[in-house]
Nucleic acid binder design. Structure first.
Lengths: 256, 256
DNA sequence: CGCGCCGTTGAGCCCGTTCAAAAAGTGTGG
DNA sequence: CCACACTTTTTGAACGGGCTCAACGGCGCG
């Protein structure tokens, strides 16, 4: 029986010391000693096909992850069948660390958009990690607080921004997040974003149809083009101008 | 010159050991030794009048807080003058811990709804706190992760729930959060919620006018009444039934 | 070449907004 | 205790942003 989206466990993957995404991730400002420690806490390296499920709402809250490569997203399903995307995950992103809310179950699901590679850690190792490597614990806290700030930005978008503003904001955020991951970009103004209009809709709280109309409208105004997974932004400042933002966080200076 | 909403610093307030809200808060599962440690980290106890500003977007990100008594809220202003409430704060709630996003500035503001009392801690003490009292550090991490889960729930509301569902969800959440704070309630079905319809609107991403119409409609269906700051819910399960939720977190088993 | 997913476009509707005004609280000072 | 000011709630009427339903087109892939 073939598992949908296929999971593959391997022990093979670059060591943390030489990992190209490490400087983005949980283990960024660490000393060599702590990086080695991180390595020992890593329980597996797992690869999934595009569309594969990483974890599901209701499953046991036992693993935490760093996305080594590829794109994924965190989401939640509703009683009426709707879906809300909570966060897009890019290489180096840390995710799956959820407070224990009593049931020991996950409240959200995660799914791969492209093929992905995951560094898997065990939740039960956290206490030991805290005890033996304080810097790792502090870093974990910092990452979680950072995610909260990003979530608050998402709340602002959904609560108070128009469809055009939401989409402008999201695309600009993704544009910047992809850009800081590129070592030597050829074209500063173009980034690859492997999202369908439906995924954008589920993140922005809109319908796919209306996302299409809004993007088309932005294209007509020469603010951006988004075709065959390539986002082109001739003038990022102009895009920022229509995003109705109140500070520059995520828009001009994303950290992750 | 009188400061709007007046701030008052006092050293007077119950010691942490005897604090009635401690079991809700950052310091909940701690040993007596750690509670004493927490006490030593507390830099001030501050009281504000209703409507007073606790901190503002753009100010220095140097203090963190536990709300000792009263109601407050975290919010963000937008370029176009709009306002989005991110979180309502009740007694025992921990807030103001924000990741450093480079500028060292706060991205959000906080304001008192009723008169409030705040336990003030210094951000710069955190490192020492982590080092010397591991349990406090772990607890801080847990609280932050918990806040993230709550924020995700808010995202789901704003992105995918109708006005009626959002309001039902918010009122039910607040109903439960107030209830677990009451030691011996007289009337299980009635709680005091000092929010105006405008505050509810700014949290739910709606207009005050539409919040009014929606609440009136819920009252006509005998699902709840909300008059002169008293929320009455004859049948919480029935209210939950219209909230379009996908799990019971916050709706039937809030932790804070 | 055919199938399936994704993007595009149109027409009509509805939920929530906007603008406006009045009614009902709430607090304050005399 | 009343008068006055201000805040909050309530209600009406009209508008519009985004949704729904539906159909078609295009591109990738087997």
């Amino acid at each position: 029986m073939k598992k949908a989206g296929g999971t593959q466990e391997t022990g093979e993957a670059a060591h943390c010391e030489t990992c190209s995404v490490r400087k983005l991730a949980l283990f960024q400002p660490l000393s060599p000693k702590e990086v080695v420690a991180a390595q020992t806490f890593r329980r597996a390296f797992r690869e999934l096909k595009a569309g594969g499920s990483i974890f599901r709402q209701g499953s046991a809250n036992k693993e935490i992850y760093t996305l080594h490569h590829g794109w994924a997203y965190l989401y939640q399903n509703l009683a009426d069948g709707g879906r809300q995307i909570l966060r897009f995950l890019l290489s180096g992103d840390f995710f799956g660390f959820q407070a224990d809310v009593g049931s020991g179950e996950r409240l959200h699901s995660a799914r791969a958009i492209t093929p992905v590679g995951l560094c898997v850690f065990s939740r039960s190792d956290l206490l030991e990690m805290f005890k033996e490597h304080l810097e790792l614990g502090i870093r974990l806290t910092w990452m979680t607080a950072y995610e909260e700030v990003v979530a608050y930005e998402h709340i602002v978008s959904l609560g108070r921004r128009s469809a055009e503003e939401r989409i402008a904001y999201l695309l600009l955020e993704l544009y910047n997040r992809v850009r800081i991951r590129e070592r030597n970009p050829q074209d500063i103004h173009t980034v690859e974003i492997p999202l369908t209009q439906e995924l954008i809709a589920d993140a922005c709280g809109l319908t796919q149809v209306h996302v299409n109309r809004t993007i088309k409208s932005l294209e007509r105004k020469n603010i951006l083009t988004f075709q065959s997974r390539k986002l082109h932004v001739p003038d990022p400042e102009r895009l920022a101008g229509i995003a109705n933002h109140s500070h520059d966080f995520l828009i001009t200076k994303p950290i992750l």
